[in-house]
């Protein structure tokens, strides 16, 4: 299905961008350490790596959510009978979709206000704040879509994707 492929592509692409930003933090800070050795200042390295971290976090949100990286306590719900357990997953996903949507609206508001007043970061370089802030809003849009995506999937009677997390170091 086309929509499935588009969505999966979007989740993966924003996660890939998030990974590059995380590596970017390492590059910036390394440049700052090495630069200091030669008397060169990397302008606003600290502020910008902070923005990279925030942006990376939100861009990776949907992908890691579907991958089951985000923590939830399943101790209680896992003891429920099957149909109640399914209902609890639907409920949790509905709440998550609403909260993400609500958060998206206000994250957009934050970026829009920074744009309107031309807010700049402090430090050597004034970074226009709407740039990193709108990637927070974009990441939350993706998260909202991912929550809704999962909700639809569960309502259709399939297992949610976040159950398939197999990355833990214990079996």
């Amino acid at each position: 299905m086309l929509i499935r492929r588009v969505l999966d592509g979007l989740y993966l692409a924003s996660a890939a961008l998030a990974a590059m930003l995380l590596a970017g933090i390492g590059v910036l800070i390394l440049a700052q350490i090495v630069g200091r050795f030669f008397g060169i200042v990397v302008p606003s390295a600290n502020e910008i790596s902070g923005f990279f971290l925030a942006t990376s976090t939100f861009l990776a949100l949907a992908y890691s959510f579907r991958g089951g990286t985000h923590i939830r306590v399943t101790l209680v719900v896992s003891h429920l009978p099957k149909h109640l357990h399914n209902a609890s997953v639907v409920l949790a996903l509905s709440v998550a979709t609403i909260l993400s949507g609500y958060f998206t609206y206000y994250a957009y508001g934050l970026a829009a206000e920074s744009w309107r007043y031309g807010d700049l970061s402090d430090g050597l370089v004034g970074v226009p704040l709407w740039i990193p802030q709108s990637s927070m809003a974009f990441g939350l849009v993706m998260m909202t879509i991912a929550c809704f995506d999962e909700l639809v999937r569960v309502l259709r009677g399939r297992e949610p994707s976040f159950k398939e997390n197999t990355e833990s170091v214990l079996d």
């Binding site: 306590v73 399943t74 209680v76």
Partner: peptide
């Protein structure tokens, strides 16, 4: 306990 994600 309802199984919501911690951050949310």
């Amino acid at each position: 306990a309802a199984g919501l994600w911690v951050a949310i």
